[in-house]
Design a protein around this nucleic acid. Structure first.
Lengths: 193, 193
DNA sequence: ATAAAAACCCAGTGCCGCTCGGTTTTGTGT
DNA sequence: ACACAAAACCGAGCGGCACTGGGTTTTTAT
């Protein structure tokens, strides 16, 4: 998927892991534009050219970092995936990692362009996320836990939209409580009474 | 404010206008990273170095373009500003200008870093927008048009958040209807009945 | 031990944002 | 009408960046 080298040797596999770890740190600290591949290479104790043995370019490195963080998060969160009630908790987790949260926010906006290396990654991600939340809402509606005067698809778009939008507000004003915002939108979706 | 040159001569003022127009086109078509100052200068019939007589750098040019579009929009929309019911209409307007919408989305995410030239611009913008919407909601609540079991400040964050978040979803999947999403969140805020 | 593949690096290339020091143009006061 | 100051404009170049091509060295399976 853009990434080069099959990484058959043990040393190569370990170096790739190290590079993803270090690149995540640098991206989080300096931002995408702010990070230079030279710095990432230096931190890893290799030369810049060697980076291109593992990743086909800067955007590809970014994509690999994002996908890696996704895997780690969903792995440590237990195999089971997003339920509606998890959103405030995820937001709380993100508040503790401002650098990576900002990285995701910037990347998801810039990868909007179809020629961006991470475009397909985010497209698939949103499609999967919206579908998952939609099914979760349909189930909650059947159980009488969510008002039925809104289509599950629309409700899913709202929740995911609020999640992304609130992140921006929080990045500009850290006093913003993301979990509280997520909770209040869930309250709006509760059956009227 | 970062911008150089007082622009006292008529020719300079006109050139600056032209540069903002052309830069908006190029930014919208090529994205921020994709646009080169050389191309913007060529389109305007001047040399790259002359750009720096009008703007102190690429980020400053971007900021000027964004502020300029803001002014034009609010000017043609009549002096009166955002009322709650206007949001779906604004979303509809944005659907007709995908390039500039994407530009705003990318810029608002990247300008999250305090050292970005447009950081203060967006900070102020969000602060003003949230305050305006909050007051609008408080008024609507007093008139019985919006449910009162949510604080105006929280409701404002939700609406603005949905607006930004839905834009992202729309950029990845143009089938998404932004006005419909905005309408449905307003419906959720209507008094229960 | 050998040989193929992987890991690694040197030395560049071209482009980009940006700067410096100057020339030409424009508008104003007298 | 002329002088002159400020503004508009440009040529030439600098440093840094992502990225490449063509190698050498290291790893590991046989």
């Amino acid at each position: 998927m853009g990434t080069k080298a099959q990484g058959t040797y043990a040393k190569g596999i370990e170096r790739r892991r190290e590079l993803l770890r270090i690149a995540a740190e640098v991206f989080a600290a300096e931002g995408f534009e702010g990070t230079t591949l030279k710095l990432v290479a230096e931190r890893a104790g290799i030369k810049e050219a060697t980076l291109f043995h593992y990743f086909s370019g800067k955007q590809d490195l970014l994509t690999a970092v994002l996908a890696d963080r996704d895997e780690q998060n969903s792995a440590q969160h237990g195999g089971s995936v997003t339920s509606l009630a998890d959103f405030p908790g995820i937001a709380e987790h993100n508040e503790r990692h401002p650098g990576l949260t900002a990285l995701f926010a910037v990347a998801s906006a810039t990868a909007t362009r179809p020629d961006h290396a991470a475009h397909d990654y985010f497209r698939t991600r949103y499609s999967w996320l919206l579908g998952t939340v939609e099914r979760d809402i349909a189930g909650a509606q059947a159980r009488g836990e969510i008002r039925t005067d809104i289509a599950p698809e629309d409700a899913a778009r709202l929740i995911v939209g609020v999640f992304d939008g609130i992140q921006l507000q929080w990045l500009y004003d850290p006093a913003t409580s993301m979990p509280a915002a997520l909770s209040s939108v869930l309250r709006l979706l509760a059956p009227q009474g």
